[in-house]
Design a protein around this nucleic acid. Structure first.
Lengths: 336, 336
DNA sequence: GAAAAGGTCGCAAACGTTTACAGGATGGCC
DNA sequence: GGCCATCCTGTAAACGTTTGCGACCTTTTC
């Protein structure tokens, strides 16, 4: 239980513990013979450096706080995977916090992370209000926002080009012969405004009339999409394709369509956004717009590292390109 | 950037910093008037206690290391969600590490976690070899294994009753009229041996002959199950139901069946194990055996807390009950 | 009214490192 | 042989807390 300290191996080696510290840190201020002797001794005695003591003096913990609304969400867990791998590769460890659905908890965990002396924070915001919610802390520690566009907010973030995502998606539908495309889902966060905008822009170029079906859908869940789609399918269907603002919503649409015996893609084409892993499942095979989660995570930690290690100030926005993933839920109307 | 310390507020309050520390810690060794004055002052000055300094003297970090093969896996991310929530509710934070597929990395992260001075480790092992892989560390820090049965190993763990899970699953199939049930998938870890045993036990009671189809499937992935199932469906089908050792495998079977135009559940019934969230998706609706992930996570952190806070020694095994989730992939043969 | 008891608070040590500074030894150079 | 530079190592301070101990003051008790 009692772990061995620098002092212990110093005594065993017959040197001061400063020397041991130097041997381990790879300082060149030490004879190579003693260095090797000490390193071997550390190995034998099972010494591992105590990070908290080190942090005490270096004032750096090598910790990155990762706060996500909830890690049991495919999108976030993928992000978390790549973020952790990348961070650890650069000598950082991840402290994970779920911020849940309410702002109070989000604020609490961020405060907690500060107490923990993390070197930086990576946060995927739970709502548009997140920004002002944690405003008081973001200037105390390097912070980068993940996956949400903050638009004109003075914050650093990395996100996909959401507008372009819906743009290429509706263009694809157009190429397939669709002329009546319904946009389904959320619109009231910055990200979703952009997605709606991309759709509108494509419609204008293609001389289509944009059409929306949405309510105050606060979270992009399958059940939320399902209930909303049930309302939708109670009315006559005078469109040939649905662009869902989110894969989760699309999955809900799929379920409601199956309930209503509406054939997808036979009668109705469907396209989503995010490319969460469920979309690739057999019998689902949802056509969707991919967010490059791996790149996003890696770039986010790079951005954060830059702030931490180089003290880079200012707000940088990293926008990544989305790609279209063609699967089986869109029908080509040109082929009779 | 420069955060305010105990000393700062002590100076402002005109007391020694020991007094401030006591005011915050809720010690009764202090006048209630000064306590309130100090607490208000701390609030105004924005003081938050520095956990690393505290850890230095208390020799407790309030950190729990969570190591999972990979967090971008539905089963583990659900586990992680509940573990983090529960841990934080008890004053602990989670340090997340992916151990990846190879043992070397697993060992590395555990060592790292020790260096980080975590109070305890929660680990879902990546393979049966994990136990001996990290044996050297598990007696240096409280450790509990999650989701994997270690059987006679001297380690604490929480897991479902895997044997009972397959037992109730095959009994269910029997009740539905199935007499030829094929067990599909992994068998070579302790957990999967138990699952196979439960199946065999049920077969014996019901006077069925157990039948297996599996190879050296090392990981329970969808694609692994898919490829294996392709082999299977190349041969004649002389059974009416498949019990897949894992939901992921079951999903692979589903895909292969669709490819081969084998109707599920019309021609073949299918049941899985784990109840990962994908199984509830529209068009999938896989009947499966649920691992109570929430309870498992909560019990695991409780167990760990007991070891940490009470210094409880010895190895305790917590076995939770699985439940059957009836969905749409099993056909009732009794109904003509 | 004095002693005991109890309540508040300050002093200082300790936790395990890193690192600036100083000191000692060694070697080279003239 | 003396001096300087170089190389190596030790000393000690510092990081921000917690906490045992002792000191002081107030109150109680006989």
């Amino acid at each position: 239980m009692k772990s061995v300290t620098l002092k212990d191996v110093a005594k065993a080696a017959g040197v001061s513990y400063a020397t041991v510290s130097r041997a381990l840190s790879g300082s060149h201020q030490i004879g190579s013979d003693t260095r090797e002797r000490i390193i071997k001794l550390c190995d034998e005695m099972g010494y591992t450096t105590n990070y908290v003591a080190r942090s005490m003096v270096t004032k750096r913990t090598g910790l990155i706080g990762l706060v996500v609304p909830s890690i049991d969400n495919q999108f976030m867990s993928e992000l978390a995977y790549y973020a952790e791998m990348s961070a650890r590769g650069h000598g950082y460890n991840i402290m994970l916090c779920n911020s849940g659905p309410d702002l109070k908890q989000e604020k609490t965990v961020v405060k907690l992370l500060l107490s923990r002396q993390v070197d930086g924070i990576l946060i995927v915001p739970q709502s548009p209000k997140t920004y002002e919610n944690i405003r008081a802390f973001t200037d105390q520690v390097p912070t980068v926002f993940l996956s949400e566009n903050l638009r004109d907010q003075p914050q650093s973030y990395v996100a996909v080009d959401n507008s372009r995502g819906t743009y290429i998606g509706t263009k694809y539908l157009y190429e397939l012969g669709h002329r009546d495309i319904l946009y389904f889902g959320r619109r009231h966060t910055a990200t979703h405004q952009l997605r709606a905008e991309g759709y509108i822009r494509a419609c204008q170029e293609l001389e289509l009339t944009p059409r929306f079906f949405n309510s105050e859908l606060s979270r992009s869940s399958i059940t939320g999409g399902y209930q909303l789609a049930k309302e939708l399918f109670a009315k006559p269907i005078d469109y040939t394709a649905i662009f869902a603002s989110t894969d989760s919503n699309a999955l809900g649409v799929l379920k409601a369509a199956d309930d209503a015996r509406i054939d997808i893609p036979g009668r109705l084409s469907l396209i989503g956004f995010d490319n969460i892993s469920s979309t690739a499942l057999p019998r689902i095979e949802l056509t969707t717009v991919e967010q490059p989660k791996r790149d996003m995570a890696i770039q986010a930690v790079d951005m954060l590292r830059d702030k931490i290690e180089n003290g880079t100030q200012g707000y940088v926005h990293q926008i990544l390109m989305p790609t279209l993933i063609k699967r089986s839920t869109c029908r080509n109307l040109n082929e009779a």
